[in-house]
Simulated scan of single mutants.
Amino acid sequence: MKTLPTLLTGLSLMSALWCAPAAVAQPVVKDSVLTTPAGMSLYVNDNDKTTPGKTVCYGPCLMLWTPYLAAPNAQASGDQGFITREDGQRQWTHKSMALYQWVDDKQPGDRKGDGVRSVWHLAKP
């Protein structure tokens, strides 16, 4: 039987692996929402409003929500900027809210993460 610390270490490793997507380009507006350049929907979490300039999505949260990371040389403009995650990676923001992709969105235009747990919403310009 695995102990709680062993399980937590496993979750931490899974989170670290999940949280390692390639850095990407600035978000764009498609069909009145922010998306990746490939058309995948981007989301914000209401709980991030309590910690401006930071995100609360760590640990198990990262198994469902992928941070939308910025390339090291990316330049912010307008309402878009960056936060620095605990692991040192830069994550895109919109109006200071961290941007994420939802695990169940499989094709451009999918919006299955909107309303999850009543705190995840499509990022809108």
Score class of each variant (00 low, 15 high):
Val33Pro: 03
Pro52Trp: 08
Thr3Ile: 08
Cys57Ile: 08
Pro21Leu: 08
Asn45Cys: 14
Ala23Pro: 11
Thr66Cys: 08
Phe82Cys: 04
Ser32Phe: 04
Asp114Trp: 06
Asp104Trp: 07
Glu86Val: 14
Leu99Cys: 11
Thr3His: 12
Cys57Arg: 02
Leu8Tyr: 09
Ser32Ile: 00
Ala76Pro: 05
Leu64Cys: 13
Gln26Ser: 12
Val119Tyr: 02
Arg117Val: 09
Pro72Thr: 12
Leu13Ser: 11
Pro125Cys: 02
Arg85Gln: 10
Gln101Asp: 00
His121Met: 01
Val33Met: 06
Leu7Ala: 13
Gln91Asp: 07
Gly115Val: 09
Pro60Ser: 15
Asn73His: 14
Pro125Gln: 06
Ser96Met: 09
Asp46Glu: 14
Lys54Asp: 05
Met63Asn: 05
Glu86Gln: 15
Gly88Ser: 10
Leu8Phe: 15
Thr3Val: 11
Thr55Pro: 04
Ala71Ser: 15
Gly109Met: 11
Pro21Ile: 03
Ala71Thr: 15
Ala70Gly: 07
Cys57Asp: 10
Thr36Tyr: 04
Gln75Ile: 14
Pro5Met: 14
Cys19Trp: 05
Asn47Lys: 14
Leu17Cys: 12
Thr51Ser: 09
Ser12Phe: 11
Thr51Glu: 08
Lys95Ser: 13
Gly115Ser: 07
Ser77Glu: 11
Gln91Glu: 11
Asp79Phe: 01
Met63Glu: 05
Pro37Met: 09
Thr84Phe: 06
Leu64Ala: 12
Val56Cys: 10
Gln80Glu: 09
Leu99His: 05
Cys57Pro: 00
Ser15Lys: 12
Arg111Asn: 13
Gly109Cys: 08
Val44Asp: 00
Arg111Phe: 00
Ala76Arg: 02
Arg90Glu: 01
Pro37Cys: 10
Ser15Phe: 04
Lys124Tyr: 02
Asn73Gly: 02
Ala23Leu: 05
Thr66Met: 11
Asp31Pro: 01
Ala25Pro: 00
Thr55Leu: 08
Gln101Ser: 06
Gly113Val: 03
Asp105Arg: 08
Leu69Ala: 09
Val29Asn: 02
Cys61Lys: 01
Gln91Trp: 05
Met40Ile: 12
Ser12Thr: 15
Trp18Phe: 10
His121Lys: 10
Pro21His: 07
Pro72Glu: 13
Leu42Val: 07
Ile83Phe: 12
Gly39Val: 13
Thr6Asp: 14
Thr51Gly: 02
Gly39Phe: 09
Trp102His: 02
Thr66Ser: 13
Ala22Ser: 12
